[in-house]
Amino acid sequence: MKPEFENIPLQKNETFKRFEITVDGHLAFINYGEFDRQIALVHTQAAPELKGTGAATAVVEKTLTFIKENGKLLLPYCPYVFAYIKKHPQWKSIVDPAFVGYANL
């Protein structure tokens, strides 16, 4: 994650079911579903003003850290999150082994 995103807090917006960061007044977020021991990440999006800034990567990294710190298992349905984990295999440790694409990570 780029240093400029390190001090931006991650918000868990339970009303809209998304993890969010706000950068210069613009939103980057991941929609989620939460179950007893699992969190499914389904869609990552960043405002057009944040394109190319690294905000989407920052919200992914912060969300994965949240999942790890809270002892949850990840279901990475979002293609962006799935690709991120494939590039950073240290995060595979939080993916639920029952996830249908687990062997492809």
Rank of each mutant, 00 (worst) to 15 (best):
K2A: 09
P3T: 12
E4T: 12
F5D: 01
E6H: 14
N7A: 08
N7G: 03
N7K: 13
Q11G: 05
N13G: 11
E14A: 13
T15I: 15
T22I: 15
T22N: 15
V23C: 09
G25D: 11
H26L: 03
F29A: 11
I30C: 03
I30Y: 09
I30N: 07
N31A: 11
N31C: 02
Y32W: 01
Y32C: 01
G33I: 14
E34T: 09
F35H: 15
D36L: 13
Q38H: 15
Q38E: 15
I39S: 03
A40G: 12
L41R: 08
L41S: 03
L41M: 12
V42F: 12
Q45M: 07
A47K: 10
A47E: 13
P48I: 06
E49R: 04
G52Q: 11
G52D: 10
G52S: 06
T53A: 02
G54K: 06
G54F: 10
G54N: 09
V60S: 00
E61N: 11
E61V: 01
T63N: 02
L64S: 02
T65M: 10
F66G: 01
I67A: 07
K68V: 01
E69D: 12
E69S: 03
E69W: 02
L74Y: 00
L74I: 08
L75W: 06
L75T: 08
C78P: 00
P79E: 00
P79F: 04
Y80R: 11
Y80T: 08
V81A: 00
V81M: 06
F82M: 03
F82T: 01
F82S: 06
A83W: 04
I85D: 01
W91L: 06
A98L: 13
A98Q: 15
V100P: 05
Y102L: 00
Y102I: 06
A103F: 11
N104G: 12
L105A: 00
